[in-house]
Design a protein around this nucleic acid. Structure first.
Lengths: 235, 235
DNA sequence: GTAGTATTTATCCAACGAGTTAAATTCTCG
DNA sequence: CGAGAATTTAACTCGTTGGATAAATACTAC
């Protein structure tokens, strides 16, 4: 691939180089974990020399932490574009779930990175001042949405926003992150488009039913192609 | 601490040796993942020579798969001791959730192993005929419980048992498996006894509210010491 | 252009880590 | 007891891997 033009042996591009290194590192770390990742492979994937990693980013651990911080930055950035305050509480929750679901689908590396970091007992994250200062806007969003929902009579109870946030993430994350083993256990492909649609509908139904007390679509009625076509638009 | 008696240099114990090796391997793989695990460390932890691993189990991958299969065997065995059919549907669901939650708390290695295997895209699990034949009894249990709940009017809708099973696992698994990173993000210890009690109450409340349509304890009222004291008893 | 700096390449290496070899020790059974 | 099998030990192999060194090449300012 590389740049086709110019007879010159190569061209300088510090910024591009750095970005390609981080992109390659992200792929590598999410595919193999921290211990399984290979510095040489990252260099090759980035179309760079191994020395460049150390020059532009640092050693393997620096590389890893930078990737991890970037992943959190990315999701936080997208989260901020979602303003749920304007919507009816039930719709806001549905939108939140759909966003979370689709974000995880669009960013499987994020799931893998989180799993890897949890295997490390968040040792690196704890040292990152950067990540600790990036608060998710969702907790406060959820708090106001839930409170409004209770006031308006949409919701039965004022669920703790942190618990709700974790639960929504859990219902999406676990299914997608563990789809490989679950697919073996249940003997069916949980990542087929139909299976994914069914899962999203189930999650939305489950959470909304718990909040509103009304059956909603908890049984898992097919939302068919609608949710899928929205996948790219959300965010 | 090894055997204190006998001046003899050592003593033979093939069965014990194999078990110690597998126990050490389980700790090692769940602590470091497949790539991060060190064969030498497993040997040392098992109070054995490295050669013994190859003699009694096989190479690193064999070791890993054996551990993984054992982990599935263990949980399936405990699952079978739980008969939910005799209970009222809502109680059966609560019991199922409490069991799942406590099993994950008592077996953090299981969570780590599953994460590791999913990072491997279930490559090893797919090759295991043993695991594929170990069906969880829960899916059928849930199906009958849910159906009975609907007939009796306890539940609003006949939720798909597989989705419900996955959701219950998700709500417990994600919280515990990701507690390290989540604790950093939220700036509080999610593994404190109070936090754990609160979480279990939330999960029970959420699922039962969705099924029954009644508020239950969805808001997360403290079950205090009761659930905790039951932790060892369950299963 | 040229001196100085930033960026990139080409090698090297010491440590590590999975797996092997061969010998030693203990057990079993006639 | 003694031969043969099972189990355990110690030492070694050999490819891999993170990281380092030093030289080369491109860019910038003058």
């Amino acid at each position: 691939m590389a740049k086709a033009s110019r007879p010159a042996k190569w061209q300088r591009d510090p910024e591009g180089m750095r970005l390609r290194i981080l992109a390659a590192a992200k792929r590598e770390f999410s595919a193999y974990g921290l211990a399984g990742a290979r510095v040489d492979r990252i260099a090759e994937e980035a179309g760079a020399n191994k020395r460049m990693l150390y020059y532009h980013v640092g050693n393997k651990e620096d590389l890893y932490l930078t990737v991890l911080e970037g992943a959190y930055e990315d999701i936080r950035a997208e989260e901020r574009t979602l303003d749920l305050e304007h919507l009816d509480p039930p719709e806001a929750i549905e939108r939140l779930i759909t966003f979370t679901w689709n974000y995880f689908i669009r960013n499987p590396e994020f799931l893998a990175l989180l799993n890897t970091e949890n295997l490390e007992r968040a040792a690196h994250l704890k040292r990152s001042t950067k990540v600790k200062s990036m608060h998710s806007p969702f907790v406060e969003m959820i708090r106001t949405v839930v409170n409004r929902g209770v006031e308006r009579g949409d919701f039965q109870v004022a669920m703790d926003p942190v618990q709700l946030y974790i639960s929504i993430a859990a219902l999406c994350f676990f299914y997608l992150s563990n789809s490989a083993t679950l697919s073996v256990i249940f003997g069916r492909n949980l990542l087929s488009p139909e299976a994914k649609d069914e899962r999203l509908a189930h999650v939305v139904g489950l959470v909304l039913a718990a909040l509103t007390g009304k059956p909603a679509a908890a049984a898992g009625k097919k939302k068919s192609a609608k949710a899928r076509s929205l996948a790219t638009t959300t965010a």
